[in-house]
């Protein structure tokens, strides 16, 4: 079985937010909400500065507090380890929102909790998620970690990388190339 993950190259990313716009249109995310977003993290003092720009989203953790905290089973693992929320089963209790260390979820105006799906509808057709395929700087690599020859497996072996808040112990599957 596949294990989907994403590697995002902070050296390439310019923070243009195209991933956010593409997600918005692809998934009809309501205006005012987002499934992915940009973080700019600055260190140093003028003129010795360092800027890391990251496109962030649900980490599709292997040990997801959101899945554990969901009372109805709406939050669940789908094929390839993609964490999904079934809108029809969600009661909007927000337990998952509180439990997520990445703050990746929001309540959709229609009452259910929504978040990144890794564009599962596209992945099932063999396509990349919308954010990956739109990125003008080619900052994203999406693929299967079970396949040792996949581009993502290779890049994670060769490039220095990190995950966010690893101390939360959730086994996140968004990797940042640094």
């Amino acid at each position: 079985m596949a294990r989907y993950a994403m590697a995002i190259d902070t050296k390439r990313c310019v923070g243009c937010s195209d991933c956010v716009a593409a997600c918005q249109t692809e998934n009809n995310v309501p205006i005012g909400f987002c499934r992915d977003w940009i973080v700019e993290e600055m260190h140093g003092q003028y003129p010795t500065l360092d800027l890391e720009i990251r496109s962030e989203r649900c980490n599709h953790c292997a040990d997801s507090p959101c899945v554990r905290s969901c009372p109805t089973g709406a939050s669940h693992y789908a094929d390839g380890g993609i964490v999904l929320v079934t809108p029809e089963e969600c009661i909007g209790c927000k337990a998952c929102i509180v439990s997520c260390p990445y703050d990746a979820r929001y309540v959709h105006p229609e009452g259910y909790v929504d978040k990144c799906t890794f564009c599962i509808h596209r992945v099932k057709e063999g396509k990349d998620p919308a954010c990956v395929s739109v990125c003008p700087t080619h900052a994203f690599i999406f693929g299967d970690l079970e396949d040792t020859n996949s581009e993502i497996s290779k890049v994670l072996r060769t490039r220095k990388n990190k995950t966010l808040i690893p101390e939360a112990g959730t086994e996140p599957h968004i990797f940042y190339l640094i």
């Binding site: 292997a62 390839g80 808040i165 101390e167 939360a168 112990g169």
Partner: peptide, 19 residues
Amino acid sequence: GTAGAAAGVSFVNAFPASK
């Protein structure tokens, strides 16, 4: 950063994609 931490809990059978 550790708000949602559940350190030490091992997780087996990660995704029974039966749904």
